[in-house]
């Protein structure tokens, strides 16, 4: 295993080079870049107004108040933003697969999946990140230790989210272009992540920890920020690791079926 450490460093160096190129690309249109960031922050703020209005009237939902919503939005928006900004191509992987654009990544001496998902950055993700951090700071749960846990929580949650996107889009290998289905699944995980987890019970709650692991993107990292317990941290870490492993396996299996646009694809 002596080589694995240096190979990890090599991949990181490569990743930074790609991110730099992405940033340069975005800077080519700096006005649009800034507009996207500000627009996304405003967009999120408007969306959050719903909860402000809601809690104005109902005060508390099974132990959750407005400050909990601030916290959950903080964690989820930041995690979403990190994934969008650093691994933006994960959002359009279906098209990349269906249109045969994996060829390019396959002809390069780098890990295909890592290369493919990091090859595009979605500028508005930066808006989500800034919004999310602000939302956390306003939540009333701020502490320096909490900030550390926030960072750890966001890293794990964005990993889980990216892995979920990869799995959803990899269905394209078997079904033909599954962009619409993947979009539905992404909406599902986001929607569920942004609601108080206390609303759900029984099978619904089970669903949120398994098939649509929204809990890993919202409530679990949020409770990690509130309080460090082994259950929170271990659960989140395990969840993210399992999802990531699954994503890599699914993608690899799919790659054996990859047709590089040589066969005519039919949209599902």
């Amino acid at each position: 295993m002596e080589g694995s450490k240096s190979s990890m460093r090599r991949e990181l160096k490569f990743l930074f080079a790609i991110w730099k190129a992405n940033l340069q690309s975005a800077m080519e249109y700096h006005i649009a870049f800034i507009a996207q960031i500000l627009g996304m922050m405003l967009n999120n703020a408007f969306y959050f107004l719903f909860w402000v209005i809601f809690f104005e009237r109902f005060k508390e939902i099974r132990g959750w108040g407005l400050n909990d919503m601030f916290l959950v939005f903080g964690v989820t928006a930041t995690s979403f933003g990190v994934t969008a900004f650093l691994f933006g191509n994960a959002f359009s992987l279906s098209d990349v697969i269906a249109q045969g654009r994996l060829d390019y990544y396959l002809s390069m001496p780098r890990p295909v999946l890592l290369h493919a998902v990091s090859a595009r950055s979605i500028p508005s993700g930066m808006g989500d990140i800034i919004y999310g951090i602000t939302s956390y700071l306003l939540s009333g749960y701020f502490s320096w230790g909490g900030l550390g846990r926030f960072v750890v929580g966001v890293i794990l949650a964005s990993t889980a989210f990216a892995a979920f996107l990869i799995i959803a889009h990899s269905l394209t290998f078997w079904l033909g272009n599954a962009a619409a289905l993947a979009r539905l699944l992404m909406n599902a995980i986001l929607t569920f992540a942004l609601y108080p987890i206390t609303l759900f019970n029984g099978p619904a709650k089970f669903l949120l920890f398994t098939i649509v692991p929204a809990a890993l993107m919202g409530s679990v990292p949020a409770s990690l920020v509130r309080e460090l317990t082994w259950q929170n941290l271990g659960g989140l870490f395990l969840g993210a690791a399992v999802l990531l492993g699954l994503a890599i396996v699914v993608f690899r299996l799919g790659l054996r079926r990859y047709e590089s646009g040589s066969a005519i694809q039919v949209e599902v």
Partner: peptide, 18 residues
């Protein structure tokens, strides 16, 4: 007049929401 209208579509959607 503006370079990119996407941010406006997001905000319009949220105005409809709220």
């Amino acid at each position: 007049v503006v370079e990119d209208v996407t941010p406006f579509t997001w905000i319009y959607q949220k105005l409809i929401f709220i």
